[in-house]
């Protein structure tokens, strides 16, 4: 099944969700943040996309984007790529941990390094850096860090 067919089927099934079709090397489906959990639920339960491979945050000049790569261990095909935009000021998206528990650490990583919050996440704390670190290093405007401590 091609990505275009998947998109057409989803668009017919959810007329209330405004979905976008993004053509490229890997074709993606653009979802609005508030519709993400509903669509994800459908993808897992009815379309057998039981395996969420990776969750990535990208810092574009005008927006943040989170990319979800979905595969199925039961049937051929994939990936179905969902893209969600978040605004630059105080980015916030719904969490998909309740649908794919694997999202837990991946969303924590996106929060830690990219600074996108996920509402409904059970434990949204920093994972790679320490608690109390300021800033989100993978943002393009991250200034770099400095140390006071040098062994003399």
């Amino acid at each position: 099944m091609t990505a275009k067919e998947t998109f057409d089927r989803l668009a017919a099934k959810f007329p209330q969700f405004p979905l976008g079709y993004l053509e490229g090397k890997d074709t993606a489906i653009l979802v609005k943040g508030e519709n993400l959990v509903g669509l994800a639920q459908h993808m897992r339960d009815d379309e057998e996309y039981d395996y969420c491979s990776s969750i990535t945050g990208v810092d574009y000049p005008d927006r943040f984007e989170v990319v979800y790569h979905l595969y199925s261990t039961k049937k051929e095909g994939g990936p179905v790529i969902l893209k969600v935009h978040a605004e630059r000021e105080n980015p916030m998206l719904p969490s998909v941990v309740s649908i794919w528990p694997t999202a837990n650490w991946q969303e924590r990583e996106v929060w830690d390094l990219m600074g996108i919050r996920f509402s409904g996440h059970p434990n949204l704390t920093r994972i790679l850096m320490w608690e109390g670190f300021e800033g989100h290093p993978l943002r393009k405007d991250f200034p770099g860090s400095e140390d006071e401590y040098i062994f003399g």
Partner: peptide, 15 residues
């Protein structure tokens, strides 16, 4: 453009 590629690394899916 953007692209995702994954392989079966010895430990699992490396993408």
């Amino acid at each position: 453009g953007d692209v995702y590629h994954r392989i079966e690394a010895p430990k699992g899916e490396l993408g």
